[in-house]
Simulated scan of single mutants.
Amino acid sequence: MFQPTIRRLAAGAIALGFFAATPAFAGQCPADQVLANPLANHPTAPSNVTDDVIGSIDLGAEIGVANRDLRLRRLVVQPGGIVPFHSHEGRPALIITVSGEITEYRSSCAVPITHRAGEVSREAEGIGHYWINNGREPAVLLSADVKARD
């Protein structure tokens, strides 16, 4: 009876240690680099990027959030292409890199963040950023965001 209890306690301690640790997730700002970054001389115009809305939902009709749409977009950023600086004030988004890789320059990170295929970027209040494809193949992204109607 005593031995199984010790095993359970040891297993629990190991599990707690495993889950309590804060892993460095791929495609995120390293914890020691999270700080204000003014992104001086950021690009303001798109270059070599297509941005197609695949679908959208009127959130007013669905859940009572007036003048907002939930939309899904497909972006293809060619090598050297730029998604210009923009803010996510009142416009949260999740972006998955479907193929290729792309570099994000974020207002809350001192170093560039590389997003590889399969990685998700969370964009929310307080984030301003731009993206550049520094690779040799197109980067394909799917973006789900909440957007105010124009």
Rank of each mutant, 00 (worst) to 15 (best):
F2M: 15
R68I: 12
I63P: 03
G64K: 04
F85R: 10
S108L: 14
R7P: 08
E119P: 04
F18W: 14
Q33V: 06
E104N: 11
N48E: 12
K147D: 14
S87L: 05
I102Q: 02
P4M: 03
E123T: 04
L75T: 04
D32K: 02
D69H: 09
T97R: 00
F85N: 09
I63A: 00
V98Y: 03
G128R: 13
D32T: 05
T114D: 07
N67H: 09
D52L: 13
G135I: 05
G55E: 09
P92R: 06
P112A: 08
G118Y: 01
T5F: 14
I82E: 01
A110E: 03
L9H: 08
A31D: 10
D32S: 04
R122N: 14
E89R: 10
D145A: 06
H86L: 07
L16F: 12
E137P: 13
A10V: 12
G55L: 10
D69P: 06
S99M: 02
G126V: 07
A117V: 08
R73C: 03
R136H: 15
D51P: 05
A61R: 05
I6M: 11
T44K: 09
I113G: 04
A144I: 12
R7C: 13
P23H: 01
V146I: 14
E62S: 15
E125Y: 00
F25D: 13
T114Y: 10
P43Q: 08
M1P: 15
V77M: 04
D51L: 12
I82L: 06
A11D: 12
R8P: 10
D52Y: 08
E137W: 12
A21G: 13
A139T: 03
S56G: 11
S56P: 01
R136F: 15
V49T: 06
P30V: 10
A26L: 09
I57W: 01
F18T: 07
I95T: 00
I113K: 07
T44W: 02
D145V: 02
R73L: 12
Y105I: 04
L70S: 05
A20R: 00
I14F: 11
L94N: 07
S121G: 12
N67K: 03
A36C: 08
G60D: 10
S108T: 14
G17I: 12
H86D: 06
F2D: 15
I14R: 09
R74N: 11
V77R: 00
T22C: 13
A61L: 09
S99C: 07
L39P: 08
A40F: 02
D145G: 01
T114V: 15
